[in-house]
Simulated scan of single mutants.
Amino acid sequence: MTAFAAPPPPRPRVLHVGSYAPPGRGIYSFAIGPGGALAPLAVTPNANSPSWLLAHGGRVYAAEEAADHVAVYAPDAAGRLQLLQRQPSGGQGPAHMAVGAGRLWVAHYGDARFAALPLQPDGRLGAAASWRSCDGDCLPGPSQALKAPPGSQANSGHEAPHAHAIQVSADGRWIVGTDLGRDKLLAWPLAADAPRGPAHELALSPGSGPRHFVFHPQDAGLVYVLQEESSTLSTVALTASGPELLDEISVLPAGFAGTSYASDLLLAPGGRHLYALGRLHDSIGVLSLDRPRAPRLLDHHWVHGNYPRSACIADGWMYVCNQRSDQLSHFDLSRPEAPRFDGRQTGVPGPAGACVV
Rank of each mutant, 00 (worst) to 15 (best):
residue 102 G to P: 07
residue 199 A to N: 11
residue 344 R to L: 12
residue 85 Q to L: 05
residue 191 A to L: 12
residue 130 S to C: 07
residue 36 G to D: 10
residue 126 G to M: 08
residue 112 A to S: 13
residue 75 P to Y: 03
residue 178 T to I: 01
residue 236 V to W: 04
residue 72 V to C: 03
residue 192 A to R: 14
residue 260 S to M: 09
residue 138 C to I: 02
residue 237 A to K: 14
residue 279 R to W: 08
residue 146 L to Y: 01
residue 308 P to N: 10
residue 93 G to Y: 09
residue 339 P to F: 07
residue 23 P to S: 07
residue 257 A to F: 08
residue 220 A to G: 14
residue 150 P to H: 02
residue 346 T to D: 08
residue 45 P to D: 10
residue 190 L to D: 00
residue 320 V to G: 00
residue 98 A to P: 09
residue 53 L to G: 05
residue 53 L to F: 00
residue 321 C to R: 07
residue 8 P to D: 08
residue 189 P to F: 08
residue 150 P to K: 11
residue 193 D to A: 15
residue 171 D to R: 02
residue 302 W to K: 11
residue 71 A to D: 06
residue 139 L to E: 13
residue 233 L to H: 06
residue 45 P to S: 01
residue 24 G to S: 05
residue 256 F to N: 02
residue 340 R to F: 07
residue 273 H to C: 11
residue 85 Q to R: 01
residue 142 P to G: 09
residue 122 D to E: 12
residue 33 G to L: 05
residue 272 R to W: 02
residue 287 L to F: 04
residue 24 G to N: 01
residue 242 G to W: 05
residue 243 P to D: 05
residue 200 H to E: 06
residue 332 D to Y: 02
residue 130 S to Y: 11
residue 191 A to P: 06
residue 26 G to H: 03
residue 229 E to K: 13
residue 179 D to P: 09
residue 345 Q to D: 12
residue 264 D to A: 15
residue 185 L to D: 09
residue 325 S to T: 10
residue 47 A to C: 01
residue 57 G to T: 12
residue 196 R to I: 00
residue 32 I to Q: 08
residue 216 H to P: 04
residue 324 R to K: 14
residue 94 P to D: 02
residue 98 A to R: 02
residue 341 F to R: 02
residue 354 A to R: 04
residue 336 P to S: 10
residue 8 P to F: 06
residue 51 S to H: 05
residue 313 I to V: 14
residue 53 L to T: 04
residue 306 N to V: 13
residue 341 F to W: 15
residue 20 Y to L: 13
residue 264 D to R: 13
residue 1 M to H: 12
residue 298 L to T: 06
residue 60 V to E: 09
residue 342 D to H: 06
residue 168 V to G: 00
residue 160 A to R: 15
